[in-house]
Design a binder for these strands. Structure first.
Lengths: 203, 203
DNA sequence: CGGATTGGATACCAACCGGTATGCACCTGT
DNA sequence: ACAGGTGCATACCGGTTGGTATCCAATCCG
């Protein structure tokens, strides 16, 4: 039994604790001391794996936030034969499942975007990469539905995908401010209505 | 000619500078020293007018942010005989006029909601009051349009109003992250389409 | 078996933070 | 004209922050 952990496990521990701390307090107010206290590690360990607080934050974006979205949203959507139904189902089910986290702390990605994008070009770039992947994921689903004749040809899938992601983040943000699951449900219901509406021949 | 300013002008100077600083850096990262450097005032002046940094922030919410919304949005909407047209016009014109500010720094209200609501119940309360006033303003406009027969009776005006505000904030937030006026235009255009859609007999 | 490298701990630092105590002009009420 | 309050400046405080320099133990490699 080794007395030292594998380096990757320590790194992963730090990433996970940093994610939680950032989710709770935002990046700027995230305290390295608190992360270290939570993990039982020390500054030596942290600065061995990450050259700076910023690098830690960017790693959280790339390796925690992006990956979670990839696994929970992008992948199911990509593999679905009925993309529109899957999209609607994901919007309902994923939000329902994480409603407490969302109402209390909001969306980790959006929180960071709102806080860091105007302040730090590097954060902006990394966050935007995740955002674009998200929009692209929805756009592909919409285009497939369009190819299947489920939504009209004149629909601008890219613009609609951007709007869906925007509205979704908006709904989560407002629900967080209200501290209300009910607001989250009501708001995302309207969003689903909007999406359903795409189906009908709109004129 | 008096050598001392009227107290209210100093207070207003502080509020305005605090608003700008908070808009740029968020509340937690807003530096009192920077506010004082910008105004040429000192800690003595600040703590004479405000008992704490939190009180300053809450005053910015109540006296700057709320009042601006009141003047630029709530009031025009309340006095309009054609509420739906006015709403759509406001969404287009106000966003166009402030697009640079919105793309670079986002919506002052939403920025603070995202940052402070989960952290500080007092902020949450003050911010929520502004948010509710906003939603109520839109709801009243929708209800008037409904009474005028412009939108169908089965439309849930409260839910739609909440969704419009949420989506709007979402659109601004996403456009800020992309640093793109074009994204802001595209996104709010979809929102206006959604609102236009309320007009048609939807079934 | 023994140097070199890796993983991490300890102790420390300067900078900055919000907040406070005190002092001092000036205006006001009487 | 004088006492008191108002409006603000100056100086200072303890605490926290991100970051660094140093050191030790374990592992790996030859």
């Amino acid at each position: 039994m080794p007395t030292t952990n594998t380096p990757d496990s320590t790194r992963a521990t730090l990433l996970e604790a940093a994610f939680t701390e950032i989710h709770r307090h935002g990046f700027q107010a995230a305290s390295l001391s608190r992360i270290l206290a939570d993990t039982g590690l020390t500054k030596g360990a942290l600065y061995h794996h990450f050259p700076s607080k910023q690098a830690l934050g960017l790693a959280v974006v790339d390796e925690v936030i992006h990956q979670r979205l990839e696994q929970n949203i992008f992948r199911p959507l990509k593999n679905s034969p009925r993309p529109l139904d899957t999209l609607l189902h994901l919007l309902e089910e994923r939000i329902q499942a994480r409603q407490h986290e969302l109402v209390n702390l909001g969306c980790p990605l959006n929180n960071l975007m709102q806080e860091m994008s105007p302040l730090d070009p590097q954060f902006q770039a990394h966050l935007n990469k995740v955002l674009e992947a998200w929009v692209h994921s929805f756009e592909s689903a919409l285009k497939l539905a369009q190819a299947q004749g489920e939504i009209p040809a004149q629909v601008d899938c890219a613009a609609v995908a951007l709007f869906i992601v925007s509205s979704l983040e908006g709904c989560i943000g407002i629900a967080k401010n209200r501290r209300s699951s009910e607001a989250l449900r009501s708001c995302t219901h309207q969003l689903r209505c909007y999406i359903e509406h795409l189906r009908r021949p709109s004129l």
